[in-house]
């Protein structure tokens, strides 16, 4: 059951991240989607990949994006 919830969270997280106007929020929501995928890997019997994805998907990628957003402008322009 829990894996279905994770799948929905992963997809919804991706969609919500892309419709944000505030790019910093978008960066953090990318992390939520990444975390859901990491847990999903655990349910798909791949614990070592889950560990890597947990680090890369929930920490490194959002932090990189957030840093880039900090260095550029944080709101999407019209």
């Amino acid at each position: 059951m829990i894996e279905y919830i994770l799948m929905i969270v992963a997809v919804l997280g991706a969609i919500i991240a892309l419709i944000q106007r505030d790019l910093l929020k978008a960066a953090i929501l990318t992390g939520i989607s990444g975390a859901a995928i990491a847990f999903l890997y655990q349910f798909l019997l791949a614990p070592d990949v889950a560990l890597t994805q947990a680090i890369v998907g929930t920490a490194i990628v959002p932090v990189f994006i957030a840093l880039a957003v900090k260095k550029t402008r944080s709101m999407e322009e019209d």
């Binding site: 991706a14 991240a17 892309l18 790019l23 978008a26 960066a27 990318t30 989607s33 990444g34 995928i37 999903l40 890997y41 798909l44 019997l45 791949a46 614990p47 990949v49 994805q53 998907g57 990628v61 994006i65 880039a68 957003v69 550029t72 999407e76």
Partner: peptide, 30 residues
Amino acid sequence: IKKIIGLAFIGDGANLFIITMGYKAGGIVY
């Protein structure tokens, strides 16, 4: 930046696809 976030999602999708192929219903960790 959103384009790049989108590219990250494409990569995630491809990875998830490969992982799912190795999954075995009711199986154990290798």
